[in-house]
Computed example of a mutant assay.
Amino acid sequence: MFVSLLEAEWYKLKRNNIYALLVIGPLLTLFIGAINPEMSQMEGFNPWYILFLFMNLPYALLFLPLITGVLAGIVCRYEHQAGGWKQLTALPVTRSQIYVAKFVLIAMLVLVIQLMYGIVVYAAGMINGFEESFPFIVLVKFIFGGWVATFPMIALQLWATMHWRSFAVAFTLNVIFTLPGILAINSERFGPFYPWAQPFFMMYVEENMSGIFFVPINQVILVTGGSFIIFLLLGLMSFKRKTI
């Protein structure tokens, strides 16, 4: 039944031009990496790591957090129209299954975007004519690290979009949390504890960095994992109590 619920959610998404939304972010960052005059001035450094820095900064700090809100709004759009929530909850499925299915679908879409971004990063390097070997392991780590870091955002945005009928209200909430991340990444004291800054930290690559997702494991567990569990449980409880 859960698989059927996922298939139904995906069928509704296909009618909202979701494919264009999945490619727009990675393609925009392709121009940043492929047409960047500062790349030629970074002699003496591994060009792949410089490319990662230029491309990951706008992508992980702005696009990735914001796209979670857009996807959450689209996933819940149908239910907010013409009594869709009543139709959905009338099916032989629990509200928990509905909530988890929507979360899983958004998370899978974000993973697709991340994988496409990885391809775009490689393409940007080829356009720049890099001769150094491609650091595939590094790419895999920051692609999946950035994906995991979006889980708290997805949970909060799903909670907001299921609670408020207006997409603008839910998206504004995401913007309010996203913009302070620009300041948080420059703070050694507060940055590592701000959930919306975690995609940047998990995708910030340096040659001498090691460990899982380029950040301490306790940061992954406490900040990303902790905020994800809190937002997920609060959203689930709110949806169970929601009057439909």
Rank of each mutant, 00 (worst) to 15 (best):
K242W: 06
V112Q: 10
S187C: 11
Y194H: 04
F177Q: 04
M162W: 03
I113M: 11
V205N: 05
F52G: 00
Y99D: 04
W85L: 14
G181W: 00
N174L: 10
V140S: 07
V215H: 10
V110R: 03
I18M: 13
L61S: 14
H80N: 11
G44N: 06
M1V: 15
M42V: 04
M1C: 14
N36W: 02
I50S: 11
M237W: 05
E9W: 14
I74R: 07
T161D: 06
V3F: 15
Y204L: 13
I217Y: 12
I106N: 03
I182G: 10
P135E: 06
L22N: 03
S133D: 07
N16H: 15
H80K: 05
A82H: 13
L88E: 13
S187H: 11
N174S: 12
I67Q: 06
K240P: 00
W164M: 12
L233C: 06
E7C: 15
W164F: 15
A155F: 01
L57C: 08
G69F: 01
L51R: 01
A184I: 11
L51K: 02
I98T: 12
I185S: 07
L222R: 09
M1P: 11
L51T: 01
L5W: 09
L232V: 02
I217H: 12
P152T: 04
G225V: 04
K102V: 06
F171P: 00
E38L: 15
L232Y: 10
T68N: 13
F167Q: 11
L61Y: 07
L57P: 01
I244A: 11
V120Y: 05
W159M: 09
I182A: 14
V138R: 08
M1N: 14
Y194K: 05
A168S: 12
M55E: 09
P192G: 06
E131C: 01
L111F: 09
M39G: 03
R15D: 13
G118H: 00
W147A: 03
P195E: 01
M126D: 07
P199D: 03
I67K: 01
E7D: 15
S133T: 05
T161C: 10
I137A: 11
V205A: 12
N46L: 09
Q198C: 08
